[in-house]
Design a protein around this nucleic acid. Structure first.
Lengths: 247, 247
DNA sequence: GATTATTTGTTCGTATGTATA
DNA sequence: CTATACATACGAACAAATAAT
């Protein structure tokens, strides 16, 4: 067979290589939703047959899609459309519940545990408290339509927020629980972002496999008077969430 | 031996457990610099001897330090003081060279490769170009005191920035290379942050082990007139860099 | 490449003090 | 006061990862 024979449906021209056209066609399929997020693409062999090209040519096209993060190939399993991550805006007025409901999903935060502890060095500095001051520590899991998006440790100074845990458990939202404690507005003072593999406990809370990557967002919130009311360490499953700044 | 015999240097009292006092002592050692960042702590056995407690008790204390991110234990190697990550502020006027020189280190960017390609869907959208428009793609590695901090793919529209690759190679800085192309100021329009394990090529460029976590920062820069001049996808080694917003 | 020593990680068991019902 | 649960601490042995020989 002539290696330069025209494949059906593919045109010839400058820069219009076969793999590029196949990549464009598959990209169009994905963005049009003909292959749903998480769904497996046809096998390379099947795609090669569909476009009447060698499997190598399909592989070159799939490599281009994978490079752009549109699909992910998994040896022995297949090639899958990447799930669109939840865009999570981070700014001075970040509120989980608004972000999730704004995405058309239902937001709820589960209170896993709450304890009174003495502030560690990090929390003391974040909250401008003397080392060893008592703080309320909450462990929460935040869900969108029931699926865990993030899990957070939250520290609040005592005794000001001694009623916070009950308020949070009843209302499922930091914003609403703070309002119940008399804080009707708050803004984010600072945000620090790191990333690392999840340990077993964190993975269980986020319903991911241990070792999958989490983004660790440490933040401090202040009330309108500028008082530091809350320090957070929030973990996001990196394959489900994309942090967005500005734009 | 009486399990309740008083260990030397440890006192007794409410809430003053042995492991807590050991954790406090080791924390003080670390923050005072008696164990330098990156340095190996004494072995668990040695610490147990120093504090005259069982190794379990030392392990409980070290677990508390590791929880706070102050140290990191590595099986078979030892326990090490965590290096303070480079704080990398992200904002409308983010400039690598200023961040690094502001931290008292020397900044330089190496141009690894530059090619002319047709814009993929992501780049076309980021730069407001029609799909298939020609763009200049650069692959760069950014170093602080010679150590790689990040590696980036950068896309610029052609033909406006046809001289950019040479300018960058000569100047080692995006800011200075843009100035050479007549862009004397620019601001960041949007930033998106994800995280995942590094593949082999990325790991080599960042001088980390494959599979270690990288933060992927996708950004778009605009000139003072609001024109989109540059799309970036920058990879940071997650254990060397902390992204900072606000504060 | 195989061996050995070192070091952290895990899992038993035992005992005691403390808080709670 | 007792019973129970929990946290603390010690002892021993082995597994697993690493580094050096």
């Amino acid at each position: 067979m002539d290696a330069h024979e025209q494949a059906p449906g593919l045109v010839r021209g400058e820069g219009l290589t076969a793999w590029r056209q196949i990549a464009d066609a598959l990209t169009a399929d994905v963005v049009a939703g003909r292959y749903a997020p998480g769904q497996q693409l046809p096998t390379e062999a099947a795609l090669a047959a569909r476009f009447a090209v060698n499997r190598h040519t399909v592989r070159r096209a799939l490599a281009a899609l994978a490079e752009g993060g549109l699909v992910r190939a998994s040896q022995g399993r297949g090639t899958f459309v990447e799930e669109a991550p939840l865009a999570y805006p981070i700014g001075p007025r970040t509120r989980f519940s608004e972000i999730v409901t704004g995405a058309g999903r239902e937001a709820w935060g589960d209170l896993v545990a709450s304890v009174t502890v003495t502030a560690g060095p990090d929390q003391a500095e974040a909250l401008s408290l003397p080392p060893g001051a008592p703080v309320l520590e909450l462990l929460t899991i935040h869900r969108a339509d029931g699926a865990p998006i993030s899990t957070a440790q939250t520290w609040l100074p005592l005794p000001r927020f001694s009623g916070f845990a009950d308020a949070y458990a009843a209302r499922g939202s930091i914003t609403r629980a703070l309002a119940a404690c008399g804080v009707h507005d708050y803004t984010r003072l600072s945000t620090r972002i790191r990333a690392r593999p999840a340990d077993a406990r964190e993975a269980e809370r986020l319903d991911i496999a241990p070792g999958r990557v989490v983004m660790v967002v440490s933040s401090v919130n202040v009330d309108p008077a500028g008082a530091r009311i809350q320090a957070n360490r929030t973990l996001f499953a990196a394959d489900r969430v994309e942090l967005v700044i500005g734009g």
